[in-house]
Structure formats: structure tokens, C-alpha cells
């Protein structure tokens, strides 16, 4: 199969995933709340409620509402926010950059911490360094990110004032949320890299490389790590989704303006259009992220590329 064909198929799959996610959210959101109650004052009459329901089309049968929603969505219209002024998609789009920054920073922490630690632990297997690295990995995987976030604020922002406690002003404000977000993934990357490196470093081609007289750095980085990173790349897509999902709570803890906080606010206010628009963007981000990882995976591993053809 040609690479282009594969790309098209994956794009279609991505659109289907988004459609399924949004459809589920559409149904669930209408089952759990009535937005008109949060739009109207406490002393509004039943007639007032009926008027606003009629205006928002909430009295129509669910299937009619759904059809209208899909038709508008295909034209890029996800409706107006009930509580903020403007189209819901524009409101969400304004917050995309904040979440992208945070997720990217979390990914940098995860890879930047997880991969080198994994390599060192594998090369010094059984040593105190290996033991320490595994301990960090277990800690990272067992620690809830919101708790870690609060601890980071407590020690690094209030005790020593190295970083601000909240907000999104400048690079320093990104450090703590990125660590809180990325540490969990870093632990996963560390364990995968370590086990991959241990396997690879015992293979024949590594012995051959050493026998050829290559220096150890080249053996490790060019031959060993390159192969050990393949499983890391495999889970990168999954971790990307986890990072985006994790950013919701991190954005709340660190008062970081992003889609996550917007979604929570919107859910609390029964702001359907904004919730739906946010989910479309999140679902699209995760599936597209996975798509990119898959494509990259095929580029860096010739065996998979060949298998696909």
C-alpha cells in the first residue's frame, strides 16, 4: 500500500473517531442537564424557560437536534457559547495554544527525563543508579499529577520562590506544570527505554559494532538507543493522549489558561456548544497526534515500512 493511501485511510479513521466521540458527548450532555436553567435567573417563570428552550432548539426531538448539529458541524459551525460571547469553536481555538504549550512542555519533560534515565539505568544494571532510576519510575507512575503539582507549588514556589505558583506568564511559569504533567509519562518512557536497551545491548550486532572498534558512545547512541527507542515511539501516541487528558487537571491546579479549564467551566455551566467544540478539538488533537506518530514510526523503522508495502 502506498504511503499516501495509508495516510488517507488513517485520516478517514481519524474523522470517524471524532464523529463517534462527539456523538457520544452530544447524547450524554443532553441527558444530564438542562442548559436553560443556568441561562435564566432564579426568578424566571416556566414561560421564560420555555421561551429560551424554544430559541435554543432544545424542544426539538433529539434526532432533529443531532441532525442540525452534524449539519452545522460539517460547515465548521459548532454553535455559539451559551455563556461566553462568540462562536464556541473560536472560544476553544483561543485556548488551544495554551494547552499545546503545556502538553509540548510535558512531553519534553517526559522524554528528556525518561529516555536518558532509562539508558543510564540499563547501562548500569543492578547498580545503585539503576535502583534509584527504577524507584523514581515507580514514584512517577504512582503519584497523582494533581498531588505532585501541589507539592511542587509548595516546595519550589512557596518555600524557595524559584517559580510562580500559578499563571502563564513567561517560561518560568511553565516549568512546574510541565514537570507535574510529564513525570508520569517520564516514568513509563524510562522503564521502556531501560528494558529496550538491556535487550539491545546483548544482541549480536552490538557485539559486532564493538568488535569493529567503534567507540562506546557511538555503539550506545547510534546502534543501541536507536533500536531501543522503537517501543518508545510506539507508546508516544498513547502518551500524547494521556498528556492532553492530564492537562485538564494540571491547568486547574496551576491556573493555566487552556482547553482543560475551559471544558470544566463549560461542563459546570451546561454550556453544550463549548463542551462539544472542546471535545472535537481534543479528539482531533489526540487522533492526529497518533497519526503523526504512526507515520513517523514507519519512517524511522524500515521493517514496518516494508511490511506495510
Amino acid at each position: 500500500m502506498q504511503f499516501a493511501n495509508l495516510l488517507v485511510i488513517r485520516l478517514i479513521q481519524t474523522i470517524l473517531v471524532i464523529w463517534v466521540v462527539v456523538s457520544i458527548v452530544f447524547v450524554i450532555s443532553r441527558l444530564i442537564g438542562n442548559p436553560e436553567t443556568s441561562l435564566m435567573p432564579w426568578d424566571a417563570t416556566n414561560e421564560d424557560y420555555e421561551r429560551i428552550r424554544e430559541k435554543l432548539g432544545l424542544n426539538d426531538p433529539m434526532i432533529v437536534q443531532y441532525g442540525r448539529f452534524l449539519g452545522d458541524a460539517l460547515q465548521g459551525d459548532l454553535g455559539f457559547s451559551y455563556h461566553r460571547t462568540g462562536p464556541a469553536l473560536d472560544i476553544v481555538a483561543d485556548k488551544v495554544l495554551g494547552t499545546v504549550k503545556l502538553t509540548a512542555a510535558g512531553l519534553v519533560v517526559a522524554l528528556g527525563l525518561g529516555v536518558p534515565l532509562g539508558v543510564f539505568a540499563a547501562l548500569r544494571r543492578g547498580s545503585p543508579l539503576d535502583w534509584l532510576a527504577r524507584l523514581v519510575a515507580v514514584f512517577g507512575q504512582a503519584t497523582p499529577s494533581f498531588w505532585l503539582g501541589l507539592m511542587l507549588i509548595f516546595f519550589l514556589a512557596t518555600r524557595v520562590s524559584w517559580f510562580p505558583t500559578a499563571g502563564a506568564e513567561g517560561f518560568r511559569s511553565l516549568v512546574l506544570p510541565a514537570i507535574a504533567l510529564g513525570l508520569l509519562s517520564a516514568a513509563g518512557f524510562m522503564r521502556l527505554t531501560r528494558s529496550g536497551m538491556i535487550d539491545v545491548m546483548n544482541t549480536d550486532f552490538i557485539r559486532t559494532a564493538r568488535a569493529k572498534g567503534l567507540n562506546e558512545r557511538t555503539v550506545i547512541l547510534r546502534h543501541g538507543l536507536r533500536h531501543a527507542l522503537i517501543p518508545v515511539m510506539t507508546i508516544l501516541g498513547i502518551e500524547l493522549g494521556r498528556l492532553i487528558a492530564g492537562s485538564v487537571i494540571i491547568e486547574v491546579v496551576f491556573s493555566w489558561p487552556g482547553i482543560g479549564r475551559l471544558m470544566i467551566e463549560s461542563i459546570l455551566q451546561s454550556d453544550y456548544p463549548t463542551v462539544q467544540a472542546g471535545l472535537v478539538v481534543i479528539a482531533a488533537s489526540i487522533t492526529l497526534g497518533n497519526l503523526i506518530v504512526d507515520m513517523t514510526y514507519r519512517v524511522i523503522d524500515p521493517r514496518i515500512r516494508m511490511a506495510a508495502l
Binding site: P41, D43, A44, F80
Partner: peptide
């Protein structure tokens, strides 16, 4: 866009 409604009718 969502019609003006009073908070303190």
C-alpha cells in the same frame, strides 16, 4: 446571541 435575559427580574 443567546438573547438578553435579566438576572434580577
Amino acid at each position: 446571541p443567546n438573547e438578553w435575559a435579566s438576572a434580577r427580574q
